[in-house]
Design a protein around this nucleic acid. Sequence first.
RNA 1: GGGGCCGUAGCUCAAUCGGUUAGAGUACCAGACUGUCGAUCUGGAUGUUGCGGGUUCGAGUCCCGUCGGCCUCGCCA
Length: 590
Amino acid sequence: MTDLKRTHTCGQLRKSDAGSEVVLSGWVDTRRDHGGVIFIDLRDRYGKSQIVFNPERNHEAHERASNLRSEYVIAVKGKVSERPDGMTNPDMSTGEIEVYVETLELLNTSETTPFEITADTEVSTELRLKYRYLDLRRPVMQKNMMFRHKVCQVARRYFDRNEFVDIETPILTKSTPEGARDYLVPSRINRGQFYALPQSPQLFKQLLMVSGMDRYYQIVKCFRDEDLRAQRQPEFTQLDLEMSFVNEEDIMTIIEGLVVAIFKETVGRELHTPFERTSYRDAMDRYGCDAPDLRFDMTIHEITDIGEKSDFKVFQSVAKSGGQIRGINASGCATFSRKEIDEFTSFVNQFGAKGLAWFKVDDNGLTSQIAKFFSAELQAEIIERFNARPGDLLLFVADKESVVSQSLSQLRLNIAKQRGLMKDDEFHFSWVVDFPLLEYNEEAGRYDSLHHPFTSPHHEDFAILEEKPLDVRARAYDLVLNGIELGGGSIRIHRADIQKRIFSLLNIDEATAQKRFGFLLEALKYGAPPHGGIALGLDRMVTLLLKLDDIREVIAFPKTQKATCLMADAPSEVDGNQLKELGLTLLKPE
RNA sequence: GGGGCCGUAGCUCAAUCGGUUAGAGUACCAGACUGUCGAUCUGGAUGUUGCGGGUUCGAGUCCCGUCGGCCUCGCCA
């Protein structure tokens, strides 16, 4: 038991506190033992304070202080003093004072930690995750966690003042086999049956609108059993909302207000609204993806027509077989060596592109191995189309649209990164709108929802729903920040008859629709209001605000790429009795 | 499921073409030191080179397998 109770935190004391008697507690950060006087930087969540043990002031405390080691937990009582002239530390907020210790209480010792808590040097992810509680003791991680907290607080205040109600939705819910893989939870009471963890609270928030809750929000965990990436964890957090009697503009305005508030109150930045809008078609044509990074230009242009007229066989055959030829202008990159261009070629190979055609631009036109297949007129057309100038490098992919788009989109990002065009202190928001409602799934030979099956089509496209389904636009919108999809949403279908039409378009028969979404269809019969919503990826947003590139940096206890928790050692095998109680048997490993 | 990178002292890394006693910095331990703040100085201890097998006179180094971490394609309505 401790007698000393802290009166101040380690980041709190200032010159004005000089003369007062205080108690501090915290962790021994660094120790500087001069044999005579001993200095210790005492650390807690709030900061660091230098405490001083002087044998002339207190012999016993000084004696005991020489046994203190890194990460020991102590409480000290002493007097705050202004530091002597020339001894202040301008790098510390408490650097003008120090505390002369009169009483030292050792609250706990510590073994040597597996890595240094204060070390600037990077420690392997593996160790950090295994000893996450120590990793989280590092000031930078504490800062990240507190920043995330602040973002949430700003969001909650914003939602509250805009009449949103925070309502919790179930974690144990029904499996929806569309979309990502579900995490399943076996039911003991209902043997042979399973809950699923929600991929999002989608249906519940729509049902809350049917309930007349009008405006719902939640900061909520979602679960998707898919492979991990730096930007993707199996459990992640969404800023989720749904509103009644609204259209796209209302949702976008609310979100713009939220994002403005978050940026202003957490990083002190003013954002300009409304955010830029890009149609899905434009985004795909100009950037090759539906989440373009608009911090730089380097847009894609198509030259299928020119390629067809050229004598270059690869371009000819692609153009004739319904493929396309598009490219980008890597401005000022004509100095790139063959080796560097070869690296780009193998880079686009991974997205299915069979090759990368290129021209360097000089005063006389285009030069490259394939330039001879292009007449002067065609070369001039290419130069004009790309607004190319001497010193530029033009890069082309010829293939089917999906391959061309993805290759050029990734290549564009790759080159921009190399050339430093992506500035991390620039935040370029945009909305991508007018998504197609459906996409054709070649493998399954049917249409799939691009967003989800509850997304409303545009009013004026209802007429062509059955005859030209791929031309139907969805009332969906994605919020994109610096090439990263921060979130997306839609105006939902609120009428049962339309929802049924969509299910039948998706080849979901009546019986299946009833089995999976019967409760939604039923609810839509009882006066469901028009409604819509959106969800933002909180982890991603916090990561971007902090100019980091890995969402694990803002998640307290993240999983490894194999979806394990190195600290808790999860997942793990369970006792046979637990399985038996659940009525489960495991298949023998193959 | 595919491709790639990595694994050496507590930590971060080095170790030439496969060569004899595997090093450095830091942390740690001991001693010295009354104004440091990455304290300093002197000394010390520290290794299943992830694990298993193979090739070789000889393997940290080459080969095969395996485990783990990371990146990435597929996947993520």
